[in-house]
C-alpha cells in the first residue's frame, strides 16, 4: 500500500516539476509580456497543484493537509489577480501585443 502511495506521490511531484520547467521555458521564449503571463500563470499554478497533490498523499495530520490546500488556494487567487493587474497596467501603458502577422 505504502509503495503504491509513494509511487503515485512521486509521479505527481515529477509531473509538477515538468510544468514548472515548461513555465520557465515559456517565460524565456514567448515574444511579449502578455504571452509570458499566460505561460507563468497557467503552467506554474498547475505545477504547484500537482506538487501539492503529491504531498497530500504523504500528510500525517488533517490540519497539515488543509494547510497545504490553503496555500495552494492562496497562490491560485494571488497569482490570477497579479496576472490580471500586470496585464491591465501593461495595456494602460500601451505596451503593444505581439501578433503573428504584421
Amino acid at each position: 500500500m505504502t509503495v503504491i502511495l509513494n509511487a503515485l506521490s512521486a509521479a505527481l511531484i515529477l509531473a509538477g516539476a515538468f510544468f514548472f520547467l515548461a513555465g520557465t521555458v515559456g517565460l524565456l521564449r514567448f515574444p511579449d509580456v502578455y504571452t509570458r503571463l499566460h505561460a507563468l500563470t497557467k503552467a506554474d499554478n498547475l505545477g504547484l497543484g500537482l506538487v501539492v497533490l503529491g504531498l497530500l498523499l504523504q500528510v500525517e495530520s488533517l490540519s497539515e493537509g488543509v494547510k497545504l490546500l490553503v496555500i495552494w488556494g492562496l497562490v491560485l487567487a494571488a497569482g490570477a489577480t497579479a496576472a490580471h493587474l500586470v496585464a491591465r497596467t501593461a495595456l494602460e501603458h500601451d505596451i503593444r501585443l505581439w501578433r503573428r502577422r504584421e
Binding site: 521555458v25 511579449d32 499554478n45
Partner: peptide, 24 residues
Amino acid sequence: RSLSGGIDVAWRSLSPSLPLDPDL
C-alpha cells in the same frame, strides 16, 4: 479546464515552432 490550460501552454512553450497567434 485549468489542467488543460497548463497542458496547452506547456505544449506551446516547448514546441519548436512556437504555435502562437495572440489576439485581444
